[in-house]
């Protein structure tokens, strides 16, 4: 079941529990949480995730820049940082786009 046009973690756990009838709900819950934790951990260690047919996650570097304190207007030096980036794979791109083929 999805609520307001989105699938949440608990929706995902319920669907998986329905399709994996041999697993108890709490095991499905633990497995989903473990998978997400392993993905977060991988990125937090500076490494990539590559899921064929789904996409890849990597880190993009944002260089240091001068920012401003929005209240005082003072210039503040912001250090460079890494941010997570997702690139959808071909199967996901095509399916999301309703398989319209062009070029």
């Amino acid at each position: 079941m999805t609520t307001e046009n989105s699938l949440t973690k608990s929706d995902l756990i319920e669907s998986l529990a329905r399709s994996q009838q041999h697993l108890a709900l709490k095991d499905v819950e633990l497995a989903v949480k473990s998978l997400l934790e392993s993905m977060s951990h991988e990125l937090a260690s500076g490494e990539r995730i590559e899921i064929r047919g789904f996409g890849s996650f990597s880190l993009h570097f944002r260089p240091p820049r001068m920012g401003r304190n929005p209240k005082s207007g003072d210039a503040v030096a912001l250090r460079g940082k890494f941010v997570p980036h997702f690139k959808p794979g071909k199967e996901l791109r095509d399916r999301v786009n309703g398989d319209h083929t062009d070029d």
Partner: peptide
């Protein structure tokens, strides 16, 4: 076998939701 199937189905559920026009919100992840 269960482990392989589970991982495959995990990503398939996300794809299915997106394919049918639903966003996917995984709290703590993104």
């Amino acid at each position: 076998r269960e482990a392989k199937e589970f991982v495959e189905q995990f990503f398939e559920e996300v794809r299915l939701a997106l394919e049918s026009g639903n966003d996917v919100k995984l709290s703590g992840f993104g």
